[in-house]
Design a protein around this nucleic acid. Structure first.
Lengths: 300, 300
DNA sequence: AATCTGCTATACATTTATGTATGACATCAA
DNA sequence: TTGATGTCATACATAAATGTATAGCAGATT
């Protein structure tokens, strides 16, 4: 008794949810407003349930609409993943691979490696998704993910790529002006750069360095790239990957013996992508790249 | 640049994969053969990739078709889950809940509880999926699952419902005819009932009771219900939940001090189902039922 | 107050998808 | 061999979905 609700309609449903109006969804989808209206009506008729409370200023989703949103989104990302896998299957390294990584990794570490990879495989297309959300792989939002924690799911292929060291850093200009802290307590007199949201990482950092609390931050920004930019601009003291700070001689380590934190780096992908060469090639290249990045450099 | 491949076509694709022919898929879907052919052609055109090698005796899936199968199936189960969630959302306990449990639990333990549940909530519909596969929840093949192992995934709501005790049992008739074993070594002279496939459980059992190997089994069957039936019929000695064996006074424990095994029981469901009352009601009822089932009875 | 813009809903035309009918070919059984 | 059955492919008719045009309404702007 497989029911007969068109899967297509869920795509329209998501657009209405995102745009907030039938007309807006129609524009976004490249179809017309009456069609969108008919799709929503069809869904509501099938479900015997209102999905939106209509008004002339737009549509407001009902509780039911919000409840099924997650499922509809999973359908969308699954459809996207399916297309990625289906296109460019003729054996060579062709087609699109979607890589998810933390912002700072995606912006500072991966680009050179991706450029090189594309030089070797010109047919390969890369979609880079810089995000700190972890759940992508299960939702099929990305094919391969670079993560700072071991995978909890066992239908994933995972490889450890070393560990990145985090430390406190500040720009030379800033330190010349404000002085180099010598004890953790000195930090209270400095401009600190940190996250806005309470993250598990932040709690861990707080345990090591009691001064490092949300209230103490002069700059609060939920983006590691943003933090790095602030550090580089000499705004204050912040957490940064040592391997990145090392690239700029004017970024100096602050309180190295009081704050050091290491994060495991993992590259993961779905098991069922193993068969297709382009995923394997990208996966291996990512592992190599990150191993190089996390490799401790000898003191020179 | 959201591509324009119709999601509907994946449903047709799955039917062709399952039936092995356009005509068969058409019959299964209640549409006509030319339509099915057109859908497949449309997919192949979009992917620039053959999905089936056509012959007059049927269609053979290509490697590409097999590769995207998993994704298409995820879309189907997601669509089904979405419909389940969307229908019967008017606050009360209405609509369908899909419960997955091991065969023996589904057949021997749950039915009375489900009957009672439906007496309290007549509008509730239950789909029972008796299977030993674990992966259902992530694939949205079931809403709630009863499992014998703690959940590894963290977007699940999970509650422990006690532990079931497993022991060796045989029917009185069998034991009168063949005698009661007194040492583990005696088992070699008996008819043993066990699994056909090597499972983690089997390996664990082997560690405790070296005799308990696949080669020693006189009856090999990959169904716990089937094993129970064989034990009840007096075919030999097999593993069975003590709580089930206790119901029939003619089922006697064999070598109780040499073989005892306890399995944690967990009831799990997706986080996002918590909002809808019917899932919560069913979840709670399952937990209660299994707690009663796993509760050790006082010796009388 | 009047006008403009943006939204939904409806009537009608058109395009698109589906169904019907049939042909060509292969396989199996008598 | 011959007929029966099952398959896919194609031409044509029909049904269904979409697009076009327009009306009606609410809020913002002048």
């Amino acid at each position: 008794m497989t029911s007969n609700i068109g899967w297509e309609y869920y795509r329209t449903f998501l657009a209405v949810l995102a745009e907030g109006s039938l007309s807006g969804a129609a524009r976004a989808l490249g179809i017309t407003q009456p069609t969108v209206g008919r799709h929503i009506s069809a869904l509501e008729a099938s479900f015997k349930q209102a999905l939106f409370t209509r008004s002339q200023t737009g549509l407001l989703p009902t509780e039911a609409a919000l409840a099924i949103r997650g499922h509809a989104e999973l359908m969308r990302s699954t459809a996207a993943a399916l297309e990625r896998m289906a296109t460019g299957f003729e054996g060579g390294v062709t087609g699109t691979v979607r890589v998810s990584a933390s912002e700072v990794i995606g912006v500072e570490v991966l680009p050179p490696m991706l450029a090189q990879l594309r030089q070797v495989h010109p047919q390969l297309k890369i979609e880079l998704v810089p995000t700190n959300r972890v759940q992508d792989l299960l939702q099929r939002e990305a094919d391969i993910a670079v993560r700072m924690m071991p995978p909890k799911q066992d239908l994933l292929v995972a490889r450890r790529a070393g560990e990145v060291e985090l430390g406190l850093y500040a720009h030379l200009d800033y330190l010349q002006q404000h002085g180099m802290p010598v004890t953790p307590a000195d930090l209270t007199r400095h401009a600190l750069i940190g996250f806005d949201e309470e993250t598990p990482f932040l709690r861990a950092a707080k345990a090591k360095l009691p001064v490092w609390t949300r209230e103490a931050f002069s700059f609060r920004i939920d983006s590691d790239v943003g933090q790095l930019a602030l550090i580089r601009a000499g705004c204050g003291i912040g957490v940064c990957q040592s391997a990145l700070a090392r690239r700029d001689a004017r970024l100096l380590r602050v309180l190295p013996e009081h704050f050091a934190y290491k994060l495991d780096t993992w590259v993961t992908m779905h098991e069922d992508l193993r068969g297709s060469p382009r995923y394997k090639v990208t996966f291996d290249a990512l592992v190599l790249c990150l191993q190089a990045h996390t490799e401790p450099v000898p003191e020179s």
